[in-house]
């Protein structure tokens, strides 16, 4: 995580950035008329010009490696713009704000203490950072073994989701039926579900072990 993020409190700018991030990737303004249309990822991405009024520079009828090469070029701006926007949201404290907002609900949501919110947010941009921070929490005695394993399940599912999703999956953004933010929110929900299923398994196991004793 970058060092320039303000620590301690929810910043107004961060909150605004978080909201803008939500709006841009939700696709809400995809068909908006007037200036609001710029608050949408697909519109920001724009379009390629046409050759002979039909095809973009990829042409038609290409095969194998050469066709794949040209096709990949059509996706390059997508990943660049997506990462560019994410970087702005990060630099202006959207993630720090999310971290502060998450702290009080960590226990009910995932069954781990509030201190883990930093590891959660760190793990959104980098799966390695998330794993290292989780390990650090356990080594420092701030979370128990059970809590660590529940949290590991959360980290593992759709790991490094912000970077991997807005980087890796961005090629599909123009071709899916929903705004780019919708599958993101869906995957985030699955992360929470997976952690809670893990929580349930661990709970049942410890009950069984207690019964055996």
């Amino acid at each position: 995580m970058s060092e320039n993020q303000t620590k301690g409190k929810v910043s107004l700018v961060g909150l605004i950035m978080l909201i803008i991030a939500f709006l841009v990737f939700s696709g809400i303004f995809a068909d908006a008329e007037g200036p609001l249309e710029v608050v949408d990822f697909t519109n920001l991405l724009g379009s390629f010009g046409k050759i002979a009024e039909t095809f973009d520079f990829r042409g038609k009828g290409g095969v194998s490696a050469r066709d794949g090469f040209l096709f990949s070029l059509t996706l390059c701006p997508t990943v660049m713009v997506a990462m560019g926007l994410i970087q702005i949201f990060e630099n202006y404290g959207a993630l720090t704000t999310a971290e502060k907002l998450l702290t009080p609900i960590m226990r009910p949501l995932l069954g781990v203490p509030g201190q883990a919110s930093l590891a959660l947010v760190g793990g959104l941009s980098s799966s390695d950072a998330g794993a290292a921070l989780t390990r650090g929490l356990y080594d420092a005695g701030e979370i128990t073994e059970d809590e660590r394993d529940i949290f590991t399940a959360f980290q593992y599912s759709s790991s490094g989701i912000i970077t991997n999703y807005f980087g890796g999956a961005s090629s599909l953004f123009a071709y899916i039926t929903v705004g780019a933010g919708v599958p993101f929110a869906y995957l985030f929900l699955i992360k929470i579900i997976e952690a809670n299923l893990m929580r349930l398994i661990i709970k049942m196991q410890s009950k069984k072990e207690a019964a055996v004793k």
């Binding site: 660049m80 713009v81 990462m83 560019g84 926007l85 994410i86 702005i88 202006y92 980087g167």
Partner: peptide
């Protein structure tokens, strides 16, 4: 600058 940093990562 932030945007350009991001696009570099995207590249």
């Amino acid at each position: 600058d932030s945007f350009q940093d991001g696009t570099r990562k995207g590249w």
